[in-house]
Write a protein that binds this DNA or RNA. Structure first.
Length: 454
RNA sequence: GUGGAUGUAGCUCAGUGGUAGAGCUCCUGAUUGUGGUUCAGGCUGUCGCGGGUUCGAAUCCCGUCAUUCACCCCA
């Protein structure tokens, strides 16, 4: 049998782990710097918590966990015969793998509402699972790094989150990211304006594809979804927006003059854009993009998406404002806003651009050659002394041929090899070889520590 | 769910109807206290699987499975 892992999953090598940890730690540090505190939720939730929260497509992509024991117990023969898959699935799979971090977070907030201090700011870095068909930059198991605030409808949160995005990517050395921003209310306003209010979802999904399929493509898709020619004609000025973010908002304002919701959206965006101009971003660029829609239907205000031009890849982050996320779990009137970082994609970008520091991979500093029992003990004493000082060192486990031991050190990229045989033991010294330069020198115990900690 | 591409040694791949190959890796030796370089030697195969055409199939045809890219959707 050939060993394999399920598609869309990956093994991680130690050097990959080191690089991933570096990203995790960077994000975590910034999250905490901005006042967020960590929580974790289980890998799997009750199916009822997740089902129906991500739309029809989402339900299909949720990994469902088969009940233990006689899982057909609750299914009648009649149901089996009818092959009503949805009905049967809900009876035989009462648990499901986490699909994202936002819905479990909403559940958490409602369940623990009496213990929490609002506005509640939490971050969460955990894997999520989607029964998707994998492709480049798309996995069935991947990590999300989310930060959300619930219980505050202040627009300063929007400002803070854009600033947080900027801080993380600046710290990671990704200095060309574009943070696209839009507001769901503007989309609603435009849909109302052209008389396609009931088709808001179809309308936004189509509009979102502008950069991919072009203007005609978008118009065609809207036609297919049953939006009238008359409405499409009214859409023309929306494609013609140009100039700075504030210029575009200006134009939108006059365009949406008859839509109360639309104007509210413009006003909100203007607050965010104006204040960020004052605060200044380190390296990211904030770009108003009214075609930005994002799939999740629960966004009600600001929408964010982060992209990099350096690589052909989906977004590396996204988020937005949702006025009533906890409502589905029975807690009304809690406004939330949050953002997410796509760790796996950020990894791909940093790797592609060579932005990882050499130093992130932690190799042992020294390998002690094993010449035999007495020598090994002598070496281990020195090794323990080094370890006490936090220096990574190890002994080759068997007294194999020199060549083999040296080879091992070479392959593991261990920078120093220590040789201590009879000669050295007599004088209490160690012969240290620098594997890069090939130079060799005699050291005592203290000099070893000094050399290796440098 | 839809469409395209690819499956040959541990890895990367060549081989378009006539004996199953190369490079890398790995192991051994040259070199019993000195790695990388070099040289010599060695190990590794259900050519994804099933069927068909043919005197003969890794090669052509059909099916199937797997992988992968793209669409849908998404991080």
């Amino acid at each position: 049998m050939k060993p394999s892992i399920p598609k869309g999953t990956r093994d991680f090598s130690s050097s990959e782990i080191a690089k991933r940890r570096y990203i995790f730690e960077t994000i975590q540090e910034v999250f905490e710097c901005y006042g967020f505190e960590p929580i974790e939720t289980p890998s799997f939730e009750n199916s009822s918590t997740l089902m129906g929260k991500y739309g029809e497509e989402g339900d299909r992509l949720i990994f469902k966990i088969l009940n233990s024991g006689d899982y057909l117990q609750k299914v009648s023969d009649e149901q089996l015969e009818k092959r009503d898959l949805n009905q049967i699935a809900s009876k035989i799979t009462e648990k499901a793998l986490r699909y994202d971090l936002t819905v479990p977070f909403a559940r958490y907030v409602v369940q623990h509402q009496n213990e929490l201090v609002f506005p509640f700011k939490r971050y969460q870095i955990q894997p999520v699972w989607r029964a998707d068909r994998p492709q480049k930059g798309r996995f069935r198991e991947f990590y999300q790094c989310d930060a959300d605030v619930v219980g505050s409808d202040s627009l300063w949160q929007e400002v803070e989150f854009v600033s947080l995005y900027d801080a993380v990517f600046d710290k990671l050395g990704l200095d060309d990211v574009v943070i696209r921003i839009n507001n769901r209310k503007i989309l609603t306003g435009i849909a109302e304006l052209i008389g396609a209010g009931e088709k808001l979802i179809d309308f936004t999904v189509a509009l979102d594809k502008l950069d991919k399929i072009g203007r005609e493509g978008v118009l065609n898709e809207m036609r297919n979804k049953g939006i009238s020619e008359e409405a499409l004609a009214k859409l023309e000025p929306v494609f013609e927006l140009t100039g700075s973010n504030l210029d575009q908002l200006q134009a939108l304002e006059s365009l949406l003059i008859d839509s109360e919701t639309g104007l509210k959206g413009v006003e909100e965006l203007r607050f965010v854009v104006e204040n960020l101009e004052e605060l200044k971003l380190e390296s990211a660029r904030l770009e108003l993009d009214i075609t930005l829609a994002r799939g999740l239907n629960y966004y009600t205000g600001a929408i964010f998406e982060v992209q990099t031009d350096k690589m052909q890849l989906g977004s590396i982050g996204g988020g937005g404002r949702y006025d009533d996320l906890t409502g589905i779990f029975g807690l009304k009137g809690m406004s939330g806003i949050g953002i997410s970082f796509g760790l796996d994609r950020i990894y791909m970008v940093l790797e592609e651009l060579g932005l990882f520091d050499e130093g992130v991979v932690k190799k042992p500093r020294a390998l002690f050659v094993n010449f035999g029992e007495k020598e090994a003990l002598y070496a281990l004493k020195a090794i323990q002394a080094l370890r006490m000082r936090g220096i990574r060192a190890e002994l080759y486990p068997s007294s194999a041929k020199m060549k083999k031991q040296m080879n091992y050190a070479d392959k593991r990229e261990i920078p120093f090899v220590v040789l201590a045989g009879e000669e050295e033991m007599k004088s209490g010294k160690f012969a240290v070889k620098n594997m890069q330069t090939g130079e060799q020198q005699d050291c005592n115990q203290d000099e070893l520590a000094l050399l290796f900690s440098a």
